[in-house]
Write a protein that binds this DNA or RNA. Structure first.
Length: 252
DNA sequence: AGCGATGTTCGCCG
DNA sequence: TCGGCGAACATCGC
């Protein structure tokens, strides 16, 4: 599930439950999701440490430990973060369990093991090297920056919005939502977009993401005129009432 | 039983 | 060089 709004929710969940507790031990039964480390290596790194803060950039959640280093969480298609009370049993598909010394726990669940947990010694260096684009909700990211990043590209708008190096955070679901509300055809080449379309895309992007975060990223709480609640099976368009047609763009 | 899925990456090709 | 496309990854659920 996780696109930007979901990751923002996981961030809130972690901040509300897991900061400043001392880490007693971890369980990492799925070494496949550990990048550049092992269960033992990660355990050594975290034991005795505390989480001290978080930074989200696009779909990535960076969790700071009190030694000034970070852990990068990427949730793939099915990852989620769940805070647990002292005697709560870890949920099914728990791929990483962090146990604090007061009994509280934090579980990373991920049925399909496509995400990653990666220790970073230097967050700044990682960000500089990863080529990750700006976060669309970053207050310093404005319309002028949006235009600058898009205007020299030649690809189709849907692929471009989903390209994490251009803008970080949009996936299939939210890109479709934004294109629908901004009335821009997904296969439209960037060079064919006119100024008003860029304006609609930028402002729609911000509004959709902020609204989604406000609704806890749960599509069943989204406004009824959005596409998301109507995109399944033979539902009809919330704007014109005609049946929704499916096309393929950017491979999906 | 088969296929799609809210993601990322890589190799191939125009 | 840029960008589209399909496959692969791992696993569930419709």
């Amino acid at each position: 599930m996780p696109e930007l709004p979901e990751v923002a929710r996981f961030q809130q969940a972690l901040e509300g439950s897991s900061l400043r507790r001392s880490i007693a031990r971890i369980h990492a039964p799925a070494p496949e999701i550990l990048a550049d480390t092992s269960p033992i290596g990660l355990g050594r790194r975290l034991a005795g440490r505390r989480f001290s803060g978080t930074i989200r950039r696009g779909k990535n959640l960076f969790v700071e430990t009190d030694d000034g280093r970070h852990l990068r969480f990427h949730f793939g298609m099915t990852g989620a973060l769940r805070p647990l009370g002292p005697r709560d049993p870890p949920p099914e598909y728990t791929r990483l369990l962090v146990e604090f010394d007061d009994g509280h726990q934090l579980a990373l669940t991920m049925p399909r093991k496509l995400g990653a947990v990666e220790p970073l010694d230097n967050l700044e260096a990682y960000l500089a090297e990863a080529g990750l684009g700006p976060d669309p909700l970053d207050p310093t990211f404005g319309y002028a920056d949006f235009l600058t990043r898009l205007q020299d590209l030649r690809g189709m708008i849907r692929s471009t919005l989903m390209n994490q190096e251009v803008i970080a955070g949009l996936g299939s679901l939210y890109t479709d939502e934004i294109l629908f509300q901004a009335r821009v055809y997904p296969r439209k080449p960037i060079p064919n977009l006119k100024q008003p379309a860029f304006g609609r895309l930028f402002h729609t992007m911000r509004r959709v993401l902020q609204t989604a975060i406000g609704r806890r990223a749960q599509p069943d709480r989204f406004p009824d005129h959005w596409l998301a609640p109507h995109r399944n099976q033979e539902m009809s368009c919330p704007r014109c009432g005609r049946p929704i047609e499916r096309i393929k763009a950017a491979g999906r």
